[in-house]
């Protein structure tokens, strides 16, 4: 296990590369869902406004 984490002496280059890439993978999922949720909320507000002032 220790040997695996050591990455043959390249640990301080390999692990930050993986951490950053996976962080960007996860963040993109969060950002995409948030972007859709915001668009849905805006659309819902527009519909309510249209109903109130036809």
């Amino acid at each position: 296990m220790n040997e695996f984490l050591h990455m043959g002496g390249y640990a301080r280059f390999v692990w930050p590369s993986y951490a950053l890439t996976l962080a960007i993978v996860v963040l993109n999922i969060i950002w995409a869902r948030r972007s859709l949720a915001r668009a849905r909320a805006d659309a819902r507000r527009r519909l309510l406004r249209a109903d109130a002032h036809p």
Partner: peptide, 29 residues
């Protein structure tokens, strides 16, 4: 494939932003 999934989720939001008063939105929401 992951890009495909992200694109499809974002695309729905971008479509909603471009459709001002379409009646189908009511159903979609």
């Amino acid at each position: 494939l992951y890009f495909g999934a992200l694109l499809l989720v974002r695309l729905r939001g971008e479509i909603l932003r471009r459709e001002r008063s379409a009646s189908w939105i009511r159903e979609a929401l």
